[in-house]
Amino acid sequence: MDTTDVSAFPLRLEGEATPMVSFKKVTKSYGSLVVLDSLDLDVAEGEMVTIIGPSGSGKTTVLRMLMTLETINGGVIYVDGEPLTHMPRGGGLVRADNRHMRKMRSKIGMCFQHFNLFPHMTALENCMEGPVHVLGLAKREARERAEELLAMVGMADKRDQHPSRLSGGQQQRVAIARALAMRPKVMLFDEVTSALDPEVIGEVTNVIRQLVAEHNLTMLMVTHQMGFAKDISDRICFFYGGRIEEQGSPDELFGNPRKERTQQFLSAVKEAT
């Protein structure tokens, strides 16, 4: 159900500084529980934004809405200037239909906490499924690209293994390659290290570091690895109660948090590690 009137929102975002991702007054609730409360968030092209915050603050929901895994109750999300949750029709915006969402979804890739690799396919097949059957690439081309990506994440030698034969860190690296194989403009990382044993977290974070360093991808990440977030993010957003409580550069936010809740959260996290 829409709780806000979308007629006030533009049909598309234009101009020089159009953000790659733009949340405009986005609201999400489950019954009476408000998960996101009129969220405004812009992510520029090539920017790496990390979302931190206590559990239940709506961080993961932000990513899931972008991937269209969750519907929204109010507001509009734009990706690459075009509305994602809505589509232009008769001079106004209406709810996006399946076709529009499929078109828009092609701009976005996502990695999950529990990898969600297809267990009955090898690493290579996981990375070829989308390119062949969604992008329509020839098998040979898809295979070459998948092999390149698997090599990039250091999994070339395991390409013919099924996920059950791979460690968590290895599975997550394959999952990153699989998402990249779809050539998204925006990559979403949803607590990708949370399910990993401590000793393999590094192999996943290194791949993400490399992506940040070498590619102009727009990235949104939810993580509990504060040190990692501080290292690689352009901006940190601290979520609290379905809103952005505070945001800023990693140095600002970690070094000199202004809000009391941010300070509390950061000191609690510091104590835990």
Partner: peptide, 23 residues
């Protein structure tokens, strides 16, 4: 079949038919 499999298929933009028959 875990929910995550549906979500992964969706995130790869697989069609409904492909999601069912291949995943």
């Amino acid at each position: 079949v875990p929910k995550g499999q549906w979500e992964a298929a969706k995130s790869l933009n697989l069609s409904t038919a492909r999601t069912y028959f291949r995943v």
